[in-house]
């Protein structure tokens, strides 16, 4: 019973990826919606094998992210993320064009997130934005050490989680999604 949930979730994830890759394989006959039946059968067999092989990797301690409402919030999270991404990209592009007006430094960020999923999402968001990159992370206290291209006028070592982004406080959004 303990290993059945990771097995099922790994199988479902593998099957969804197979469905995306084989979309549009429907022929004239013998097909369900967009997929042909032989393709679906082979995909099911392959994803069951994948689930058996990978079930150890999918064991989680908490299942808070299994709630579909949180996945909906995660989809909404793309909007503030893209706004921040545009600002960060234009800032870094301007800094490359105009030359060496940069003040690099490593600051310490204490976001106060309670779950591992939230820390993963926040550090991935920070790293994907040009201009900030997560160098190291303390796995117990979830403090992040972030290299910034521009640390500001009055740099301090411990930075608040709202200051790292240009306009919006993405850490607040992540707290709302994962906790």
């Amino acid at each position: 019973m303990k290993s059945i949930v990771p097995f099922i979730s790994a199988t479902v994830a593998a099957f969804i990826i197979y469905l995306v890759l084989s979309i549009g394989s429907a022929g004239e006959t013998n097909s369900i919606l967009l997929w042909s039946v032989p393709e679906l059968i082979i995909g099911l067999i392959l994803s069951i094998i994948t689930g058996l092989l990978c079930r150890k990797l999918w064991q989680g301690k908490r299942y808070t992210m299994a709630n579909p409402l949180r996945w909906l919030l995660l989809a909404v999270y793309i909007i503030p993320f893209v706004i921040e991404l545009i600002i960060a990209n234009l800032t870094v592009a301007w800094k490359i064009l105009t030359g060496r007006n940069i003040r690099p430094g490593i600051v310490k960020l204490t976001p106060g997130l309670k779950t591992d999923a939230g820390a993963l999402l926040l550090s991935a968001s920070i790293t994907f934005q040009p201009g900030t990159a997560t160098v190291d992370i303390n796995e117990k206290t979830r403090e992040m050490y972030i290299h910034c291209l521009d640390v500001g006028d009055a740099p301090v070592k411990g930075m608040e989680s709202g200051k790292i982004f240009a306009r919006l406080d993405l850490a607040k959004w992540i707290r709302r999604i994962t906790e």
Partner: peptide, 30 residues
């Protein structure tokens, strides 16, 4: 892209390649 950038940066810092040009470095003492 996110994961590989983090992996390169972290392994570079752990191997002793500290920032040459920097204003502050909070990771140095920790």
């Amino acid at each position: 892209a996110t994961t590989s950038t983090h992996a390169i940066a972290r392994s570079a810092y752990r191997s002793g390649n500290t920032p040459k040009v920097h204003v502050i470095d909070a990771l140095e003492e920790d």
